[in-house]
Amino acid sequence: MKKLLTLVLMAALASTAVFAEGQQEKAEGPWTPTKGVEWVVTSSAGGGSSIFTQNIVEIMKNEGIVDKNIIINYKTDGGGAVGRRGVSMMKNEAHTLLTFNSGDLQPFVQREGGDLDGLTPLAVMALDGQILLVNMDSPYKSMEDVIAALKSGERLIIGGSKSDDEAIYDAMKAEIGGDMEYLRSDSTGEALTQLLGGHVDMAIAKPAASFDLVSTGELVPMVTASASRFGEPFDAPTFTELGYDIEFQIYRGVVGPADMPAEAVAYWSDALAKVAATDTWKNEYINKFLLVDNHLDADDAKVYMQKFEDMYSK
């Protein structure tokens, strides 16, 4: 029993969080949350989605944007499929949010038989660029070299993560053609490892994950899929400059269930807009992770995400 006692003591010592059961006042005027909010994240704690969500929740709490408790619930079953389906099935639910990036939309549309009609987009909070890199020892010095090699029938292995990056590969395959294979990795980090070891010819990565390696010249940027060039050290032509119709910028967004009451949609859209306008958000998240600050409210986010759905369901 001593062990248990020790456990209790330690738990008591360590517990920093208290379940604050806020007083229930009937709200007058615009809708506000009436109880604790559950925020579903469909990938594991510590990953990109988790950091994104934690940052928003922190800001909501610290800046007093939302005064009810928000609990982040990591629902990773079925690669996140179960969590996404669960949220989309909720009826008349105003207190559940879901982190929903382009990397979540893709499996949702392609494998889980879902579409955006099952969810209510609330905001796009940031955009993330993608860039194609080669190893410093690579025979290819520029994207022109790569394209020439492809045209002459050379076989190229492109590495990238299993989620967002593949769309770029697909677009390249369609637009440029040639003998290419995509080597899927669990994460961008793994793809970069393969590239550093010379096991793939090129890798698709996000700027934040590759910043240091590109800064030191270990990896060399070849081309970017964004609309415009990145600043140093990622300065490389866009696909459009090279004459290919590939333009692509993945997003980080937030959605609610399809059946979320209109006043709650308005509330959350507004609350997320407030978060995106804070300095903390810009300094501690956007700049730190080299993202593109591009907040869209509920209506614009719907249009934006719809474009992705159309692309994925092609």
Partner: peptide, 21 residues
């Protein structure tokens, strides 16, 4: 005592501290 302490310990660790919903 056994059931109360065990439940309390489990609550303390999983619900309060690790915040499992």
């Amino acid at each position: 005592p056994i059931s109360i302490i065990t439940t309390a310990a489990l609550y303390g660790i999983f619900a309060m501290w690790l915040m499992v919903p």
